[in-house]
Every structure is written in C-alpha cells, then in structure tokens.
C-alpha cells in the first residue's frame, strides 16, 4: 500500500472514532432523558376519607350499592392539584364480607373503563365491552366475560373519630391480568 493510502485509512479510522465519540456523548443522555418517565412510581396512597357514603345509612344501602368519591392531592408532572378526585368506589353492604361491607374500585379490570350498576341495580356492568360482575365482585357469565378477574376490592376501615365514615386505601391495578397487580 502506498504511504498516502496508509494515512487515508488511518484518518478514516480516526474520523469514525470521533463521530462515534460525539454520538455517544450526545446520545447516551438523550436516551436516558427519553426513558425518564419509565419506572417513575405513582404516589403511594394512604387511607383517605371517602365522601358520599355513610356506613350507617341503612336506607341508602337497602337500595343497593353506594358510590363514594376519594379526593386527595394529585401530582401531574409539574402541576399540583391540592384536592382532586383520585378515584371512585362502589360500596356494597354484604353480610358475608369480613366487616359487613365490600369496597370496589370503579375501574374495570378488563381495560380500565368505569363500571356502572347494571340494569335493575343487581349487578355491575361495564359499558365498554360488556363485562358483568355480581354485587360481591365475582365475574358473571365466564364464557363471554372479557375481564379475566372480578372487580378489584380495596382495603378499608372505619374512621376513628366518626365510625360512620369510611376510609379507603385507593390503588390502581394492572388491567387485563388474571391477578391483582398494584401499579400505584
């Protein structure tokens, strides 16, 4: 090889090296920046008071499940909402349950729509893909129910100061799974 050819391939190598160096120095932080939201945890929820439900309101429960709302401060990127609705729950009076009540999140375990009461109020029905659940949260019509698990039950307790009021630890669960997986 002629000496100048030697030099040219040497320069070629160096140039490739330089290009790679710059690309890495710029590219690595760029990728880290893009991946920033991945794996960010939602705020862990504490027990929060539920509005719109009184456990001692027998008349209301005699009519069927009662819906309650949970407000909390919510962080959305840079914005802080001091008191926003973080979610809603269905409260069902059920003598078979451990403390006489069951509390379900209104989020459908299929793909996250919001679950209504079914016609007549005897079931829960999701308006999106017709998943139906019994008042104890169990899946109905397993042969054509798109959800893979029953309604998600939340842990609750009575408020110390006012036992008629309900406190719930509000959580979100992964949609579409057979088991409850907390996602924040």
């Amino acid at each position: 090889m002629a000496p100048s050819q030697d030099r040219r391939s040497f320069l070629r190598l160096l140039t490739h090296g330089l290009g790679t160096l710059i690309a890495v120095v710029l590219g690595a932080p760029a990728v880290a920046y893009l991946l920033d939201p991945v794996g960010r945890k939602a705020r862990q929820s504490q027990f929060r008071l539920v509005d719109g439900v009184r456990l001692d309101d027998d008349a209301a429960f005699a009519r069927g499940p009662v819906q309650g709302v949970i407000r909390d401060f919510r962080v959305d990127g840079w914005t802080l909402h001091p008191s926003d609705v973080v979610g809603r729950v269905w409260v069902v009076k059920d003598p078979a349950a451990a403390n006489g009540f069951r509390v379900f999140t209104t989020i459908c375990p299929h793909l996250g729509c919001s679950v209504n009461l079914g016609p007549g109020g005897g079931t829960f029905a999701c308006p999106c893909h017709n998943a139906e659940f019994a008042l104890d949260g169990a899946r109905l019509h397993p042969e054509h129910n798109p959800a893979r698990r029953g309604l998600d039950e939340l842990t609750w307790r009575r408020n110390d100061a006012d036992p008629g009021r309900l406190e719930v630890q509000y959580l979100n669960f992964k949609a579409g799974e057979e088991t409850k997986i907390v996602v924040g």
Binding site: R8, L11, L14, T15, L18, L21, I22
Partner: peptide
Amino acid sequence: FWPEQAFRDLVACL
C-alpha cells in the same frame, strides 16, 4: 472530502 476534510471537520465539531 472523505476522509481528509471530514477528519478536520469532526475535530472542529468536537
């Protein structure tokens, strides 16, 4: 341009 000038350019870019 390749690689004589490209090398100089990249050194300057760096």
